[in-house]
Design a protein around this nucleic acid. Structure first.
Lengths: 334, 334
DNA sequence: CTGTTAGCGCTTTCAT
DNA sequence: ATGAAAGCGCTAACAG
């Protein structure tokens, strides 16, 4: 019941080579033969075995994408952008979710390596550079997503996270906030560290205080825990503004502040997030945020990969600039 | 620069067959040899070529999952559940996003078929049963996700959408609402039709009116458009409650009502969504919704697939019951 | 334009 | 316990 090129060739009274040609180079075959072979394929329900194709051809038409968290709309937006560019090149994107776990990240890299993917796009958790170098040495183009790395030999598409952190805290200070808390973590994630660095710089310049409330992930749940911790403090010990390392955290903080206790945002505590996901605008209190061009990042990442793999260019590093989006959650207190 | 089993065999002074055995059946090889081969693998940086493995073995260790919309947290939650169960079986899940487009759905099914995936989990858009049957006839187990189908020979994991729609409108009517609007579409999506059917039934029983506002997708954007259309009406022509076919639509409606015009929810219009995604609770007005056990659905789908593929059982159909979650958006007007 | 043929890298009998 | 050898299904020379 398993139909192979051989069966198709038989049914169409041609050789297997010709069948392969109508599959891969139809221009090299006479229209009449194409017709006949196509009909046989249809009739027999032949579907090409990609493992065999790939083994022979030596390369795959899939691109691997490893993200930190599939549940974060920022990353699914990146995935959509990547898919779009891949589709233009008649390739596909396979999505792996590391869930912020180094072990799962490693597992996906290895899996993709076994599959000899055409290229790897990765938003790396740790800097497992040796593993990435090995991949590259094998001929797989690696593009770092949402992340630059000291080693300039990797292409990367990133957003200036230090600049974004700076924007956020500068804005809070400009709204008259003096005691700012940075909510984020773990510090193993570069984006978090960079945003904190930018935040510190802005805090110093503005002469406002910045405390750090560490979270163990960048999720709504972790945000809720941080918000609860904040609510549990005596009012005079609370900050008057929170900068959350991403919108998921910010939404969690918001939920905790407004629902569990009844601290008002922005009157008592102003709140700003990061990523500007679609849901930010629809939050209980519409959330100020730092916008990153997620789809464009994904699109560009595939584009760089394709160019580098095509030998058309050397590794390139693209850096986008983030943008402050002001909404109600950081309004000046009445 | 490409390391194969042959190179490893050479380096370890054994035959390729032995290398293969330490890879796949280490118990059949003496510990000392295993040691030697492993060392060689490590030293040479050998990574097995999965295309070759699969070609020879005849099957893959990947499970394909096709969802309607990766940007909908409901589906990424399903994906997480599926991944979890797959990992237990040392398999992986490849995620395909049909984006509610029949053409992309077909493309992914074909792609997965070419890859000879071990099983297909699909939340089908249209009923492309012939294509799914062909897949199954080739030996690939197909499990329908979030969807039952007349053909009982397919396993499926679904949630009672008719029941869910019923719950939603019954609740609205119980809160005293008389003019209800169902916002959803396109009608090519079964879930939408079923939820509408349940809604109609409840509306009839309660003696309230139900109008349908058709959308062209189940996204925040489409919801916003529907909300704008509602706002544009004279107040006396507006419904006093909206049941949105999913939470994304509901969030869009909410944004349009509250931000573009200033129709108050729930005072002027009550609003209930579907799926109970994490963001629903954090909306401007916390959103009532119909909860579905998303991760469990994904987990169960892989489980059914594995059981059926293992020949351990016949096709099975699991149906979960949805659950009403009441929040502020459907409170009785003051 | 079409047919023949040699592998791609691996797993798996079957001997030894 | 290990080695030798036969393909899995397909593509890409190369010949005709």
């Amino acid at each position: 019941m398993v139909v192979s090129v051989r069966d198709v060739a038989l049914a169409a009274s041609v050789s297997v080579g010709t069948v392969s040609n109508v599959l891969n180079h139809p221009d090299k075959v006479s229209p009449a033969t194409v017709e006949r072979v196509t009909a046989a394929i249809e009739k027999l329900g032949f579907v090409r075995n990609d493992a065999a194709r790939q083994l022979r051809a030596g390369h795959s038409r899939s691109i691997g994408l490893v993200v930190l968290d599939v549940r974060n709309p920022f990353f699914t937006d990146i995935a959509r952008g990547a898919e779009e560019r891949a589709a233009e090149a008649r390739m596909t994107v396979m999505l792996g979710n590391s869930d912020e776990k180094a072990e799962r990240e490693r597992a996906y890299i290895d899996l993709f390596e076994e599959q000899r993917i055409a290229g790897l796009l990765i938003s790396p958790l740790a800097d497992d550079l040796p593993r990435l170098r090995r991949l590259r040495d094998r001929g797989t183009t690696v593009v770092l997503v949402d992340r630059e790395v000291a080693d300039e030999s990797f292409s990367s598409v990133s957003v200036d996270d230090v600049g974004g952190g700076y924007l956020a805290v500068q804005h809070l200070a400009a709204q008259g906030r003096r005691r700012i808390a940075f909510v984020g973590g773990p510090m193993g994630i570069r984006q978090v560290v960079d945003r904190l660095e930018g935040a510190s710089r802005a805090a110093n310049e503005a002469g406002v205080s910045l405390e750090v409330i560490l979270t163990d992930s960048l999720s709504v749940l972790a945000g809720r825990a941080a918000g609860d911790a904040l609510s549990a403090r005596a009012p005079e010990d609370r900050p008057d503004a929170v900068f959350a390392a991403n919108d998921l955290l910010a939404m969690g903080v918001l939920q905790a502040l407004m629902m569990r206790s009844s601290i008002r945002v922005p009157d008592e505590i102003a709140l700003i997030g990061y990523d500007d996901i679609d849901f930010a605008a629809a939050a209980v209190v519409p959330l100020s945020s730092i916008r990153q061009p997620a789809e464009l990042i994904g699109y560009t990442a595939v584009d760089l990969m394709l160019r580098e793999a095509g030998g058309k260019s050397d590794p390139e590093r693209v850096v986008f600039q983030p943008e402050l989006v002001v909404r109600e959650s950081t309004a000046r207190p009445a």
